[in-house]
Every structure is written in C-alpha cells, then in structure tokens.
C-alpha cells in the first residue's frame, strides 16, 4: 500500500462570476509515494504544490482524479488520522501558549492525557521551544511559529507527514534541526512528503523528487537517475602560462575561454575533446592547474525543465 497515491488529478478553480475564466491549477498529475520514503516536491511559485497538498488533506476538492492517503480516499475522516500537516507560512491560535497549543492538537487527535503531556514535552524539546512553552503564540517570531507548527504536525506520531515548505523562515540552525527531524522520521519508518524551493534540501534529504511546473509533473524519480539522465557535463580546465585565445584549436573546441593575466580558464561542453585540449595546452607550454568536471545538478534540471515549458 502506498502512503500517497495520486492518479490523474486535476484541479480547476471555478470563478465566482460566469464571465471569468476558470483556472486550471493542476492538470493530470499522477504520482505515488511508498511508505518510508522521503519525497521532495519542487516547483516554482504558483506551480501548484500547495494546491496538491490541500487536496490530499481534503481542504480542497479535486475536480477529477483519484487521491488516496495510506489506502483510504482523501477527504475521508479516516484518511487523516495518521497524517500530520504543516501548512505554508503557518499561523495559529495566537491566544494559546505553546504548551496549550500542542495539547489542543493532541486532543483533536484523540490522544490520552498522559500521552499528550509526554509528547508535548518531547516535541517542544525537539524543536527547541522548551523555554518558550508558557509564552502565547502571538509573541512568537516567524521561525518559532514554523517550529511549533512542525511540532503540531508530529504530536500524534503520524505515519505520514506532509510539510509545505518546512524550511521557510528558519535560520541556518533551524533548517539543520528540521533536516534532522525529517531524517529521524525516516529512521522510524515514517513517510515524509514536503515541498520546497530549496534544491539543496532536496538533494540532501530526499529519496525521490517530483518537479511540478504549471500544474504538470515534469520530472519524477530518484535524484541520481534524474541527474544521470540529463548528464550534459561540462569541464573546466585551468592552466597557467598560456593565452588561450592565441590557440585556434582550443578556441574552436571550447565553449568559453576566460583569460586573467597568466591564468587561462577553458570551458568545454563535454569530456569528448578533453584529452585533445590538454595536449594542445601542454604543447604550448602551459602548466595545468586543475581539471574540474561539472555534473549536471538537480538545479540545472529544474531550471532546464521548468523553463522549457514556461
């Protein structure tokens, strides 16, 4: 059984007035996430990430398509009992203290009083808010709200955690803490589905990624596979004691040559002509400083894929 199953999901916002055009935000999105996976959901602003998550939680109704969480249809009460959700830029009941807040969500999840007390203390510690536990949320900073929001999503130790941009608004320490929390969730066999704009987070954390643009899934798979699939490598050769522009053979093979005094940087579009270029440079009396192959990163794929369609 998949943790999340999305089949041919479409979402069209019906306008308020008949003369306005309906907006299709998700078009035929399909993806499945197995249990125990960390899945990163990438996409530019307005791509439809938040919309997808809200449909999963039954906050929005899909126009068409099938959406399941842990084996039950999205929108059913049962589908949400083992799910924790952190919305983007969360804002919570500001008249509650951090402790009361977690307690409230524990009660909503139907936990027993002792369990709530234990989990509340544990989670406050884990998100670094133990000292602020008696403070009202109105006095919390943005990052603190993000942290308490994460704690709220985890209060009932859910099987599936859906996080909408969990790192936004956090300082570097906070981001590291969130990364650690996500990794420890995986160690406990939980499934994590999170959206982000930050590609390095995805590269560091995720088993698989999906790239969404304009409501369509443009890429889906393991990061290594995605990166390999589009491996248009470039190579940077740095060499001292030559002037690259004076070597016609190098000039014809390189995509770019940058000269800074003695030092010459030659950029090649692939490994194909590397040996040839190195030989020419050596012959011209150059002293080789470095050869750096550049692998295509997820970022390149993201930019390439999303730009092509936009």
């Amino acid at each position: 059984m998949d943790a999340i199953l999305i089949e041919r999901l479409t979402k069209t916002y019906q306008p308020m007035w008949p003369w306005e055009r309906p907006v299709t935000v998700l078009a035929d999105v399909s993806l499945s996430i197995s249990r125990g996976e960390i899945f990163g959901f990438l996409g530019h602003n307005g791509a439809g990430k938040t919309t997808t998550m809200k449909i999963l939680l039954g906050l929005l109704r899909a126009t068409s398509g099938r959406v399941e969480l842990l084996g039950s249809l999205a929108g059913n009460v049962a589908s949400r009992s083992q799910v924790g959700y952190l919305p983007e830029s969360p804002y919570f009941y500001d008249y509650l203290t951090a402790e009361e807040f977690l307690c409230f969500y524990g009660k909503l999840a139907g936990l027993a009083r002792e369990v709530i007390q234990r989990r509340t203390a544990e989670l406050l510690e884990r998100v670094g808010l133990t000292e602020s536990r008696h403070r009202q949320l109105r006095k919390f900073s943005k990052g603190m709200l993000q942290r308490i929001g994460l704690a709220q999503a985890l209060i009932h130790d859910p099987e599936l955690v859906i996080l909408d941009e969990p790192m936004s608004g956090l300082d570097p320490i906070g981001r590291k803490e969130v990364r650690d929390i996500i990794l420890s969730l995986r160690d406990h066999g939980k499934t994590v589905f999170f959206s982000t704009h930050i590609i390095s987070d995805v590269e560091m954390l995720c088993d698989r990624v999906g790239i969404l643009a304009r409501g369509k899934v443009l890429a889906l798979g393991r990061i290594e596979e995605l990166v390999k699939e589009h491996a248009i490598q470039s190579v940077e050769v740095v060499c001292d004691g030559v002037v690259g522009a004076e070597l016609p053979d190098v000039q014809s093979l390189a995509t770019r040559i940058v000269q800074r005094g003695e030092r010459c940087l030659v950029i090649l579009s692939g490994q194909g002509h590397l040996e040839q270029v190195l030989a020419i440079l050596r012959q011209a009396g150059g002293r080789l400083v470095s050869v750096i192959p550049h692998k295509n990163s997820l970022e390149d794929i993201f930019l390439e894929r999303t730009n092509r369609k936009v």
Binding site: L57, G58, P87, F92, G110
Partner: peptide, 14 residues
C-alpha cells in the same frame, strides 16, 4: 482569515 482552519480540518474531524 487566519488560516488556522487548515490545521484543524487536516485532523480526523469532519
């Protein structure tokens, strides 16, 4: 307005 409803309705509550 305060979007507190998101986290409430995301719970097992109708």
């Amino acid at each position: 307005e305060r979007r507190t409803i998101y986290t409430i309705l995301a719970r097992p509550i109708t």
